[in-house]
Design a protein around this nucleic acid. Structure first.
Lengths: 342, 342
DNA sequence: TGTTAGCACTCTAAAGATATGAGTGCTAAC
DNA sequence: GTTAGCACTCATATCTTTAGAGTGCTAACA
């Protein structure tokens, strides 16, 4: 479609615009990059590129700005995947080791790093071990009326909640109950502990109806809690570094959207299927961010979606850098998870 | 010191400035509020107030703006504690019931409500049950090499972590160990489980040195985790609604400070002793927020500090409203905690 | 046929000039 | 003690001018 020279010029314009945020003129290209062409020639080419829909002019006497179509071509064909500098790599490693006690903190760190490295807002959607299996449950006595119900999954996670128990129930009885239920649910993926199964548990055992209703309720609650997807945001501050958000109104607008966890969740879920997804400007169907671009990467472990991370920013985004960073983070997380889960 | 008329005029100026963020002129006061005085008279009074250090002029032909000294007088003497409207009360209750499964979520909601109601940044420092007592510990078997160590406190909380155990150790042995340690620590406030005590536990029991070192380590870790103070922020978005933060640079500045959890923690800890503390402008010793005011309230349960909440904003802050909201939240949280802990 | 120098033209953004108006301080009269 | 009147100040808004970056077009050149 475009000859090599046009492509080259377009690429330079895009990259110049990405780094300066200023409309790019023919002279700039001629001066900054040694193409062996005069401004006039470049001007002619730019004129063509505009006609083809790749460039736009904010006004007659400004330079030109890449269109969404140009960015699309750029990320699909022109982009050259870069590598992180040793410095950056060290920075990332440092941030990660700073805090990483729990899964949540790892995801939070991921969001933070992503935003720091890309100077944009980052979002991480963590699927809490959807594949975890029920191992067993156990009661820990608390006082005469209460015990703590613990559910242990095969990845070594414990979820617990307080349940009410009938007065005078002995520990052995509780152990017996726990064992009975455990045998029914053992080895099940939490995701597959359906309502039907819970109901089956309920009817199957008839020792103490009232206690059981509350127990099944608690199991359900813990199951949901364990499976809950969590959203982590990063870089609402970096946002302010982007010239596009010099205007406070725009910032408010975007922050308003990000504040709604539900919206962010939907946004991320929408792009979860493909490994790497880049949405440019109005390609995105969510209102309010149609002048933004989003780069999203979804990661799996044994086929299961572990999480999805995304960077949201102006269409003028360092796509190459973003992809490189995400790639590095992916590898990092991968080894981290694999050693963790042995 | 000031006669009643001066006080009244000063109060009106402060309140007008708080609500409009514009320097207040003598005519405005005369027109808006029916004092039975002409602008000229008010002008004379204002001139006096300026001489006394209560008012400042941004420039000759602007109105006047209250000084820090004026705000100090205002919060100490002039302020009239308001009441929340039914509407606001309903709003708060709604936000609280929206999510309140865990302690953390309650504190997070508190921060959110505080910022929404006051249109300022809010901070909540939660002392995780400093008074909780060790009840007992228990091992939940996981696999051949690992068990989950659970520590149960008298408030029904369970903290857990995975510990490595020697191959072939039987559940009964683990139970025996757990019992032995539990007897040593039982009834102790977690805060009082000192390093010495842990060392005593360590030397006291000589069954399996290596296992024990790791166990004591884990207990220490869980103790620290349980006692960890947590910081919750709210309303970084509301910040942008304040005219003082129309300038993106200022926003960045403040957000930069709030991003450092350590700084926020120190900031809040500094004002923890008194019940209600209002710091105006440069009264605050922390750099970067010296053109801001902070209203902070610390709450106790049985003498123990449960948490401290604060609102940070421009010196032009609705002090009355902030205090009213905090007061309401305090009562709300109090009943919530008391019913929770019976 | 592709490339380039030259030049008139366009249009924004910065700089400068002018006008408006809110607010003050002071004086003199009530 | 209060107030009307008036000159004065100064930030802000508006208009005007200027400078400069960039374009499109034409004509000449390889």
């Amino acid at each position: 479609m475009l000859n090599d020279r046009k492509k080259k010029i377009l690429q330079l314009i895009i990259e110049d615009y990405i780094s300066t945020a200023e409309p790019v003129g023919s002279r700039t290209i001629a001066r900054k990059y040694d193409l062996g062409l005069s401004p006039a020639t470049i001007r002619n080419e730019m004129s063509d590129l505009e006609l083809l829909g790749y460039l736009e002019q904010p006004h007659t006497s400004a330079g030109r700005v890449p269109s969404a179509q140009a960015y699309r071509l750029y990320v699909d064909n022109l982009i050259e995947p870069g590598a992180l500098s040793d410095n950056e790599r060290a920075l990332i490693n440092g941030w990660f080791t700073e805090r990483r006690r729990s899964l949540d903190e790892i995801f939070q760190s991921t969001a933070k790093i992503l935003s720091r490295m890309t100077q944009n807002v980052s979002m991480v959607l963590a699927n809490r071990d959807a594949g975890a299996r029920f191992r067993y449950m156990k009661f820990l006595p608390l006082d005469e009326h209460h015990a703590i119900l613990c559910i242990i999954t095969d990845d070594g996670n414990v979820d617990n909640c307080v349940v009410e128990i009938p007065l005078g129930m002995r520990p052995e009885e509780l152990d017996y109950l726990a064992g009975k239920i455990s045998r029914l649910l053992e080895g099940r993926e939490l995701a597959n502990i359906s309502e039907e199964l819970l109901n089956a548990v309920h009817t199957n055992i008839s020792e103490d109806k009232i206690l059981f209703t509350s127990l099944v309720q608690s199991i359900r609650k813990l199951r949901n809690k364990h499976m809950e997807q969590r959203v982590f945001l990063g870089g609402t501050k970096q946002l302010l570094n982007q010239p596009e958000f010099r205007d406070v109104e725009k910032v408010k607008n975007l922050l308003g959207i990000l504040e709604e966890e539900r919206v962010v969740r939907d946004l991320l879920k929408a792009g979860e299927d493909s490994g790497l997804k880049i949405t440019i400007g109005s390609e995105n169907k969510f209102s309010g961010i149609q002048d933004c671009s989003m780069v999203q990467a979804t990661y799996r472990l044994n086929g299961q979606i572990v999480g999805t991370m995304a960077v949201l920013g102006p269409t003028r985004m360092e796509y190459g850098k973003v992809i490189t960073v995400m790639d590095y983070l992916h590898k990092y997380l991968k080894t981290m998870f694999e050693t963790e889960h042995k």
